[in-house]
Design a protein around this nucleic acid. Sequence first.
DNA 1: TATGAATGAGCGTTCATTCAT
DNA 2: CATGAATGAACGCTCATTCAT
Lengths: 196, 196, 196, 196
Amino acid sequence: MARTSGTNLRREILDTTRRLLIQDGYQNLSMRKIANAIGYSATSIYLYFENKDNLVHALIDEGMEKMQQLLLGIDNLLTDPLKALRELCNRYVAFGLENPEYYEVMFQLHPARMARYPVEKYRKARKNLEVFRDVIEAGQRMSLFREGDALLKATAVWTSLHGLVSLLIAQRVDQQIAPEDLQERVFDQVVAFVGG
Amino acid sequence: MARTSGTNLRREILDTTRRLLIQDGYQNLSMRKIANAIGYSATSIYLYFENKDNLVHALIDEGMEKMQQLLLGIDNLLTDPLKALRELCNRYVAFGLENPEYYEVMFQLHPARMARYPVEKYRKARKNLEVFRDVIEAGQRMSLFREGDALLKATAVWTSLHGLVSLLIAQRVDQQIAPEDLQERVFDQVVAFVGG
Amino acid sequence: MARTSGTNLRREILDTTRRLLIQDGYQNLSMRKIANAIGYSATSIYLYFENKDNLVHALIDEGMEKMQQLLLGIDNLLTDPLKALRELCNRYVAFGLENPEYYEVMFQLHPARMARYPVEKYRKARKNLEVFRDVIEAGQRMSLFREGDALLKATAVWTSLHGLVSLLIAQRVDQQIAPEDLQERVFDQVVAFVGG
Amino acid sequence: MARTSGTNLRREILDTTRRLLIQDGYQNLSMRKIANAIGYSATSIYLYFENKDNLVHALIDEGMEKMQQLLLGIDNLLTDPLKALRELCNRYVAFGLENPEYYEVMFQLHPARMARYPVEKYRKARKNLEVFRDVIEAGQRMSLFREGDALLKATAVWTSLHGLVSLLIAQRVDQQIAPEDLQERVFDQVVAFVGG
DNA sequence: TATGAATGAGCGTTCATTCAT
DNA sequence: CATGAATGAACGCTCATTCAT
């Protein structure tokens, strides 16, 4: 029985999968659980996604695009690199904390545990890193930032941000530490490092 | 059939579990496999560990202690904080990269997704952070490092290191980046931040 | 969308099914695969065949007819029974070995395990046997063959040929035995038996 | 709950599997069906057989041994080859008709549809053929049978018998033909061929 | 202390088929 | 004439766990 208009089920599957990912994590994600959660038979999922990997891939894809739009939405991205870098950090972390389900599949999943993430999607993933790199390069051109391999610097920055998001999501940060304090401190570290 | 004195089986289970964990990853860890590997029946494990979660908890516990010993084994830990900080970073990352699967279980497993990790074990995990804090405090006392909340700084440092290890383990670092370069850059960032 | 004139789809289904059958075997034959292969929806098949069994029955039917035509195409079928008998054997075995999966469905599928194979189709299957019988009878009339119940003799001949094809298809013949040798030996046996 | 003494379940599984094989054929044999039929959980089967293939292999093995004992039990096997050959045929066919479930997995299963039947079991399978060969050789030594490659002749004989059994089991023999008549005719054919 | 026997729940996936349009 | 949407049943198999001994 068709409950909603056709292609909406695809959306519903994706959304429910995200919800379950937050709740139970990737390890405990199962096609049946998704199906039950949306009130359809497990078989139905296969009408919209070839298999579990494909479903997760689609989710990763969405996440990458969302993050990219968020990062590219910054004002004066290349004209005010100092401010932009800080805002990049802000938005990256905000995205992670607000979309932990995306974040987990996007960045914490070991590729060996999934069918290889298709090459063309990796390109999309890399775009995010390139935003950081471009901003750093812009800052370098304007002599606001120290010289040095911009991609490497971008990756180092990303490393810190990723650590921050990961620990906060996994609730591994000591309770005595206020997340906002830590976040600010990490941003300081990052900005200081890129050189302001 | 009692092959060895009683409590040794507990040890054997832990050692084998760790080995299997490092070899095959958490996803592929199963009670049956552990039992087979040590040549006992699966049932026997339950004589020493209430369930799988408990066993894994005990393992995390041991991992934390191992890492602690590794970190505390540094020469002149509190007398040469500058060198010590860099060596702390070195050893932390080395531990993570040498035991990737182990590291994942220790730091990436979401506590809410396992039976609650007992509070007193969290204290042990915290010990590692405290080593970083103590070194930073020592440096501050010797006026080698900038002032500021040492625990917070330690956490920020840890954040970067954790990010580094996580990304490398998950093989998410761009192929154009040499891991050693990235590592050095992150260490620089950390040391610069703590202020040398 | 109607791509070709109506009843041609039935033909297309049958042809494709046969192709898939020969390619992948009965076990791997599925309605969805057939549908995909012809570029129609799975549902469409049901417009022409009540269910999978029916489709396969129709295919068996066609196979029987094909074989019959093959057998009836022999020159001087009833005028030179000696040569004809040997050629019958030749063609029967060739058909089996060239279409092993098809052969299996035609002769090895247990009728009780499919929806009852309609009686009138059995008649068509019987036609093949009758070709053998007719040739034997012709030979008897010409005093080339020994007397005796021709249908029974035909069945005995068929028995040997079927055994030969079956064992070769199932790859159960000892590797030391060259298939051609075996085939010749069996033909000799058959011809000798009918009595030349 | 242990209903019967331990190792009897293995027996029960094997027997039930045979029963189901007659009923539904290999294609429709499933672990669940077996489990249901014996009133145990599907999981339990895996305590006694590593997987479905292993279970079927065990069955094939049993069948081979049974048949071998049956064939080797003939009196004066090598001293009265003429009688022995006919009795071999008798017993072979009798075995097939009385144990169609064994027969199906033993001789009709295409190896590609199962995990490769282990090599050492193939040896056992070959033993049956060798009984035929040995009798033929004995007859040749006593100048009772015509000369010629005994293994090839044995295989040709087997071919006919296999065809007979297969068609009878699959109920493909025309209803006008009395099975006993056909059987006798085939035996005549065989014996005549080996040369008496 | 240790085990053999057993299980219920679950996994991803495929299948033939139905039904409203 | 043809389909898109959907499903229930089944598949082989693995898992953590229990329980009587």
